[in-house]
Design a protein around this nucleic acid. Structure first.
Length: 582
RNA sequence: GUCCUCGUAGUUCAACGGAUAGAACAGGAGCCUUCUAAGCUUCGGAUGUAGGUUCGAUUCCUACCGAGGAUACCA
């Protein structure tokens, strides 16, 4: 449709089709597509208002000469100041869109492609449970994967587990000192939380120590260093403890992933990959790609790219953060031969990834140009930044728990005779919708302030609001209790809201493409809110089942069924499951 | 110091360089003998400051002010 209009413009101007940019007018009364005539005006040295009028006359005249009116897809053309507005044939659109949705059902909008894409998420450390930052990471990773799959990509979610290093030793040391050899099972605690408690405990002790002994508060740090050395030297006792605690952490993460329905295909452990990283760097040194500093450290000089000199290996030969990243990418390419690898990692690591990608180039990795840092913003709390060390974080499990409890209360308020399983199932899905929506609605690039209360609300611009619209449609369709008649009179969908909804349904495909291209699930969120709100208004204004005209009833039923299919499809892309009743 | 984000109603967020800057929450006023009131209707209220580019700037450029992040041989 859009292309046909462009063609029409091109035929009547000197413009090339690819230079024509059509806009969507801000209000539907103004038409469906608009050409802003400013550029043409400049070329022709006339006023844009006149250009718009002249172009309109020219198009109509050309058709009159051929003894036909406007092409079938156009209803009329009008000028509005410097804009030339095109009104497309609403009947035709309604018919083609609704038919397309009904034919393809949940596959409406799907595309085909063959690219292999790796998505890395969420990259936890095994010293503490997953918090809100990880949650944003997971939800972005999950939804962007769903969206890319929807447009036909072959997507694999992989993970990096930071399971070694100073921070891991901290929780280990605290456990050695204060753990009394207990286990999560004994104290009845989720295992990753159990580990995290010792990480917080370490930091408390370190703080206490430096307060008591400000001059030499180094004792604990020395112990950490010793532990790290022992780990590097594979001290059996230390390795045993390390394995035990890592398993607790990983087991806990798995539970959380399951609650979020997040499926990781392959996990890469830093402890497995860092040695190989050293080898790659030493080989690079041999080839003259990297340099050796006076102190013995190995660096890459990126000063010409304004990225400074970066250390890749310490003087004692031990690895740094970037060391294992180099090898991990290498291994992943061997494993998947990906066309693109998307790192879902916070924007605080932008610099790190710039350097990392430069290292890939320097090493002549053939995937060097296939890597992308999906850099998302931080979540802040109303009282400031979250700090795991101090324990003032919002924990993912607790958040889910709290939301589910609230959803249970709300569900019980409305239905007092449901069995516990049914309540739990509904509450869980409603809670997930609330949480996922409240996080995904923000532009991924931007930091945002997390309001716990708002994320647990079920009214307004929320996931449950969209679910509720879906449920109401389903409830009507269920009451109808007949097969939907797909041969309807489309001209009966003639109110302003009918038109608006049809337009929205038509836009779905474009929204998905845009969300995929720009890595913005938030576009789908606002789209779903608009579609839901349009339906809610429609529902309040127009009787559907209670319509006294049988033909109108059929038409409206088919329309709302189409809405429900798109709502469900969009929610699923965000990783949100629908409920049938609420 | 340098580099990167971000400053929009009381609050949290939207707005391919385009037409009257949208929502939601909070506040005021209404709507449940009619398809689920987790809903609908309705009323107020905003582009940090100063320049520039442009027919047109919330959007692009410069400076300033303010918030956050990076600049680690931490991860």
């Amino acid at each position: 449709m859009k292309d046909k209009i462009k063609e029409l413009i091109s035929q009547n101007t000197k413009l090339d089709i690819k230079d024509i940019k059509l806009e969507i007018p801000p209000q539907s009364e103004m038409g469906d597509y608009a050409l802003a005539c400013f550029d043409l005006a400049k070329k022709e040295k006339k006023s844009p208002v006149d250009i718009a009028k002249e172009l309109k006359e020219k198009i109509i005249e050309n058709f009159n000469q051929n003894k036909e009116k406007l092409p079938k897809f156009l209803e009329k053309i009008e000028t509005y100041g410097p804009y030339l507005n095109f009104f497309v044939n609403k009947l035709k659109i309604a018919e083609s869109i609704i038919k397309e949705i009904q034919k393809n059902q949940q596959n409406y909008g799907k595309l085909n492609d063959s690219e292999i894409i790796l998505v890395e998420s969420p990259g936890p450390n095994t010293n503490k449970p997953l918090h809100l930052g990880h949650l944003r990471n997971i939800l972005l990773g999950q939804s962007i994967s769903n969206i890319l799959r929807f447009i036909g990509k072959d997507v694999h979610i992989v993970n990096v587990v930071n399971d070694r290093g100073v921070h891991i030793c901290k929780s280990m040391l605290a456990y050695q000192k204060f753990g009394n050899s207990t286990s999560p099972e004994e104290v009845g605690k989720k295992s990753d939380h159990f580990v995290g408690d010792y990480y917080v405990r370490y930091n408390q002790e370190a703080k206490k120590q430096s307060a008591e002994n400000p001059d030499k508060g180094e004792k604990l740090e020395e112990e950490i260093h010793d532990l790290l050395i022992k780990w590097e030297n594979s001290d059996p006792q230390v390795i045993k403890l390390w394995k035990k605690m890592n398993n607790w952490a990983l087991k806990g993460f798995k539970e959380t992933y399951r609650k979020l329905n997040f499926k990781i295909e392959k996990e890469y452990l830093e402890s497995d990959t860092y040695q190989g990283g050293k080898d790659l760097i030493l080989a690079g040194l041999e080839e003259g790609i990297f340099q050796k500093n006076k102190d013995g450290s190995i660096i890459i000089d990126l000063e010409d790219k304004k990225l400074d000199k970066k250390v890749l290996l310490r003087p004692d030969g031990t690895s740094v953060y970037i060391t294992q990243d180099i090898n991990m990418a290498h291994l992943r390419y061997e494993d998947f031969k990906f066309d693109k690898m998307i790192y879902v990692v916070g924007n605080e690591q932008q610099y790190h990834f710039k350097v990392l990608f430069e290292v890939f180039k320097a090493l002549n990795f053939n995937f060097a140009n296939k890597c992308y840092h999906f850099s998302y913003g931080m979540i802040e709390l109303p009282e400031g930044k979250m700090k795991s060390r101090e324990g003032n974080v919002i924990d993912t499990d607790n958040l889910i728990e709290e939301a589910t409890e609230l959803a249970k209360l709300e569900t019980k308020k409305r239905y007092d005779n449901l069995n516990a399983d049914e309540i739990n199932d509904r509450a869980n899905k409603i809670a997930m919708a609330a949480i996922k929506f409240s996080i995904l609605k923000h532009d991924p690039l931007k930091n945002f302030i997390f309001d716990l209360k708002k994320s647990l609300e079920f009214e307004g611009d929320t996931g449950p609001y969209v679910l509720y619209s879906y449920v109401r449609i389903k409830s009507i369709l269920k009451k109808y209790d007949q097969k939907l008649d797909k041969k309807i009179n489309f001209s009966l969908l003639n109110t302003e809201l009918d038109q608006k909804i049809i337009k929205l349904l038509k836009n779905y495909k474009g929204i998905i493409k845009s969300a995929a291209k720009n890595y913005k699930p938030s576009l789908i969120v606002s789209y779903l809110l608009e579609l839901s709100s349009s339906f809610s208004k429609y529902y309040a204004q127009n009787p559907i089942l209670n319509s006294d005209n049988e033909e109108i009833k059929k038409a409206r039923l088919l329309l709302i069924d189409s809405i429900s299919l798109v709502l469900k499809s969009g929610l699923n892309l965000l990783g949100i499951e629908t409920v049938e009743q609420m």
